[in-house]
Structures are given as C-alpha cells and as structure tokens.
C-alpha cells in the first residue's frame, strides 16, 4: 500500500501537468508545451517565498500563484498571440517549446543548477493509512489535485464560462458568432493554468525539490497522462496522471529501479496503438 501512496503522490503531479495542458487546450485550442515549466517555476517561487523571504504558507502560495500566472500571461502574449489568426496555427507547437526552453534557462540563471529543498509545510511524521505509510504533504498533494481536477471538470460542464470554453475549443469561429470573446477566454485560460501551477509549487516542490530541469521529465509524463486520459477531458487527465504514477511506482518496486520509465513508455505506446484517443474517449477531436 505504501507503493500505492507513492504512486498516487507522483501521479498527482502528472495529473496536474495534464490538467494544465487541458485548461489551455480547451479554452484556446493551443497545446502549451511549457506548462510543466510553469510548475517548475512554481516550485522555485515557493522556495523563494518560504525560504528566502521566510513567509508563512498562505502568502507563499499566493506569491507563487500570482508569479506563475503573470509568467503564463507573458508567455501567451509573446509565444501565442502573434500567431493567432494565422492560417498555419500549428506554429504554437514550436513557440511554446521555445517558451519552455527560455524558462529552463532563466530558472538555471536565477536559482542555479543545484536542486533546492522546498520545505514541507506539514509535519514530516508519516501517517499510516489503509496499511501503508504516506507523508502528510503527499496526502495533501493527492487531495488538492483531486479537488482541482474534479472542480475544473464540474466548472466546465455547469457554468456559462465553462461551456463557452468547451464550445470555443470545438469551433472557435462558431463560438465568436455566439458572442463569446474567444481571445479573452484564451488569455484567461493561461492565467488560470499558471495560477494553479503556482498554487501547487509548494506541495510539488516538497516532493521533487526545486530544480531547473524538472519540467523536462514532468512534461513527458504529463503527455503519457493525457494519452491515457484523452486530451480535452479533465477527468481523463486526472485519472491518466494517477494511473501513470501507479505504473511508475509499481514498476520501480517490482521490476527494478532502472525500469519504471521504460515500462511507462511501453504502456504509453500500447495505448497509442490500441486507443489513440485515450481510454476515456476524448471529448475533443484534434483537427490537423
């Protein structure tokens, strides 16, 4: 059961990446390759707030949320906006990768290349739960991830803005013709995705350390989570992330510490072959 808890905690991080991809994809039709980097910056800002400034938990979380939201807005302005309205809209696949590289470099320049320890905000004493041990901070990570994922899912189905975001993902022009300000919606999605990444900086950092190339590994597993869950489905991304984390943890435990990545990518390829739209039948067909 300890392995299950470890898998769920790692999986929560992958779910967060998948959720971030989905928020932006649903509202603006853009795949933001730099989202994992936003979470990476979130862990550094959490370090800066908690350690450098010595702030309490709430101000640290707010600082990280606001900081990452601003960075996401800058990314939207620089890497996305100039390409909107162009017929070859797949340019954003490249500019968001560029944004990711820039963020990696900036983080290394500002915070250095050595991993920094983000303090755990909860007691370090492990809890024994359902026959396994789990750190309180990991339990909080799992819980809050579930809340955010399910919350965003319900929001997109039961509020006017949420429906508008689904509609504009399906057909941008038709959404404009109904009076929806699709551009504002896209900008808002970046801000929300950034803020969520910032909020989780403290909890994620407590598990992974703040390190400049965190984004790379997380991005890959975020993809796997999306592939399992189906792009455009928040619940799918949530489940996909947790499933990826569990596969990773069990492979590490029972096959060997050298193999979890290979096993995860084996599962990834298998799903691409068998169910290219993901196990939960994508809510959104990608037109290329």
């Amino acid at each position: 059961m300890t392995t299950v808890w470890a898998g769920l905690a790692t999986g929560a991080i992958y779910s967060l990446i998948a959720i971030g991809y989905n928020v932006v994809l649903l509202a603006s039709g853009t795949f933001n390759f730099a989202h994992a980097q936003l979470l990476m910056v979130g862990t550094f800002l959490a370090y800066t707030g908690a350690v450098t400034f010595g702030l309490p938990v709430l101000p640290t979380v707010l600082l990280a949320a606001a900081g990452v939201a601003v960075i996401a807005l800058v990314e939207e302005r620089v890497a996305i906006r100039p390409l909107l309205g162009r017929t070859d809209s797949h340019g954003t696949l490249i500019t968001t990768v560029g944004a990711a590289t820039v963020l990696d470099g900036l983080a290394a320049a500002i915070w250095g290349r050595q991993p920094l320890t983000v303090p755990s905000v909860l007691p370090d004493e492990p809890l024994t739960l359902l026959g396994g041990t789990v750190r309180p901070v990991d339990l909080a990570l799992i819980g809050f991830t579930l809340v955010v994922g399910v919350g965003l899912h319900l929001w997109s189905r039961h509020t006017l803005t949420g429906l508008a975001s689904l509609a504009s993902a399906e057909d941008r022009d038709a959404a404009s013709a109904r009076g929806i300000n699709v551009r504002l919606l896209g900008v808002g999605a970046f801000a929300v995705a950034g803020a969520v990444a910032g909020v989780f900086g403290l909890l994620v950092g407590a598990r992974t350390y703040a390190v400049f190339d965190l984004g790379h590994s997380l991005a890959l597993f975020g993809f796997v989570a999306i592939a399992i869950g189906g792009s455009g489905s928040q619940l799918g991304g949530l489940i996909g992330g947790f499933a990826t984390g569990l596969v990773y943890a069990f492979a590490a435990r029972y096959i060997g510490a050298a193999y979890p990545q290979i096993v995860v990518f084996g599962v990834f390829l298998l799903i691409l072959f068998l169910r290219p739209r993901g196990l939960f039948g994508a809510a959104l067909e990608r037109r290329v």
Binding site: L163, L166, A167, E170, D171, A174, A177, L284
Partner: peptide, 11 residues
Amino acid sequence: VQENKRVFRAR
C-alpha cells in the same frame, strides 16, 4: 447562422 448547420456537436 453559419452554413452546414454549424452547432456545437459535442454539446
């Protein structure tokens, strides 16, 4: 009302 009955088919 756009051509081809352009409603949001997934909704």
